[in-house]
Simulated scan of single mutants.
Amino acid sequence: MRPRFEQRNVLAAAASGVSDFISGRGGDAGKVFEQAGVNERCLGDPFLALDLSDYCAMMETAAAETGDDNFGLWFGQQFQPRSLGLIGEIALAAPTLGAALDNLASLFPYHQQATETRFTQDADGLLHLEYRILDGRILERRQDAELTMGMFANVFRSSLGPGWTPEEVHFEHPRPFAWHDHRDAFDAPVYFGQRTNGLVFRNRHLDRRMPKGDLARLTDLRAQLVALAGSTGAPPFLERVRAEIRSRLPEGPPHIEVVAGSMGLARWTLQRRLADQGISFSQLVEEVRRALAAHYVRQPHIPLSDLASQLGYAELSVFSRAFARWFGCAPSRVRTAGGWH
């Protein structure tokens, strides 16, 4: 039976080949699926869906099970658009590379709900293909971000050849331990702790023909995807606000006007809707910082000064005091003890 599409699903084709990839890296695929709550029989079926949280958990669990902290990075590098189901076929059926990117950006949230994908141009004339999850409940999502950037890069390569490289690659998570692998995989500068995940590239070759472009097929595939998913999904209001807060923390304490504007709301409207939920904006910022601090402090390769900056603190001492208030001990003590006890 096909699962009912709700607020945050991802089509199971996004996990095509993951079982073999886990096994090839020395992991127990069955154990990974069981721990993540994923039904292995759904994997790779272009018309079935997985819960987005379970999908992200599966990739994080696979990284731990295989002992490969860059599991998502390497899985994405080998993942070809044709394996991605309808959204991959849509990109390949577009007449030009520019049309492929337009369709990818506009339709990817149907393939993977509760996400934002944008195709934009910055003030310097560079183009950005950006992606992030909008559900603030999904804290652990690094592997998903890294595999998605690899998938996106392979859309370019399907038109421009395997040697195509971006100008830059951006990731929202802090710099991982083996970060040189990311630079080598994309053959480009990689920046961590950014507002969103994205590929940055120059405004050229967008008129290059896609090798399998077929406008009639593109139109049919677009209709299939929209009908299958039903919607782009919508995380609960508080989770969307948490996501906007998270994306702006590396720039410093987020301002309510900026977060409200990113959601298309006036400041007073956001304040009123938060009050209706029994919480203030400052309390929500505190909750997001606390949850991320608990997540990142367990990763010893992230210097505490970088962790403080990732959470919007200008000084480590200020972050340390906040951490002690939340958890009753200094973050350095958690690190020294090797984790929570």
Rank of each mutant, 00 (worst) to 15 (best):
M1A: 15
P3N: 12
P3G: 10
R8D: 15
N9E: 13
N9R: 13
A12T: 09
S19M: 15
R25Y: 15
G26L: 09
A29M: 12
K31F: 10
G37N: 04
G37P: 13
N39V: 13
D45L: 10
Y55A: 02
M58S: 04
T61A: 09
D68K: 01
D69P: 10
N70L: 00
W74P: 03
F79Y: 04
R82V: 14
G85L: 09
G85I: 00
I90Y: 00
A91G: 11
L104V: 09
L107A: 13
F108G: 10
Q113S: 11
Q113A: 15
A114P: 06
T115V: 09
R118T: 10
D122M: 11
D122A: 04
D122Y: 14
D124S: 05
G125Q: 08
H128M: 04
E130N: 06
I138Y: 00
I138R: 07
E140S: 15
Q143K: 11
D144W: 02
N154H: 07
R157K: 07
E167A: 06
V169F: 05
R175C: 06
P176N: 00
H180L: 13
D181Y: 01
D184Y: 05
F186D: 05
F186H: 07
D187E: 12
G193S: 14
R195E: 09
V200W: 14
F201Y: 01
D207M: 11
L215K: 05
A216V: 10
A223E: 11
A227S: 14
P236W: 00
P236N: 10
L238A: 09
E244R: 12
I245G: 04
G252T: 03
E257A: 14
V259R: 04
A266P: 02
R272F: 11
R273S: 12
R273Q: 09
L274P: 05
A275G: 07
A275T: 07
F281T: 02
A291E: 15
H295I: 07
R298E: 12
H301A: 13
L304Y: 08
L307Y: 07
L311Q: 01
A314G: 14
E315A: 15
E315G: 05
W326M: 12
W326K: 04
C329Q: 08
S332N: 02
G338D: 11
G338I: 15
G338F: 08
G338W: 07
